[in-house]
């Protein structure tokens, strides 16, 4: 096992090459996913607070209330 990790005397070249490659890939995954989660949260908060959407929702609610009144009248 120990001789395997010595890589025939080239351990200081082989393992850093793999470590560097792994660090780059892990770094890309972590930074990409963190940014994605962060922006998703911001968008959710903005959409929840957006007055236009809220107004549209109120209008939709009023419309359904009206139609319910209409059906109950009939």
């Amino acid at each position: 096992m120990a001789t395997y990790f010595e890589m025939g005397g080239y351990a200081w070249f082989v393992w850093p090459a793999y470590a560097f490659s792994a660090a780059i890939m892990v770094g890309l995954v972590v930074t990409s996913l963190t940014a994605l989660r962060r922006d998703r949260k911001i968008l959710d908060a903005l959409e929840a607070a957006n007055p236009r959407r809220a107004m549209r929702r109120e209008a939709a609610a009023a419309a359904t209330a009206n139609s319910e009144e209409a059906t109950s009248d009939a």
Partner: peptide, 10 residues
């Protein structure tokens, strides 16, 4: 020798 393994990430 073993340095050829660097090829698989290089």
């Amino acid at each position: 020798g073993e340095t050829v393994r660097i090829m698989y990430v290089h």
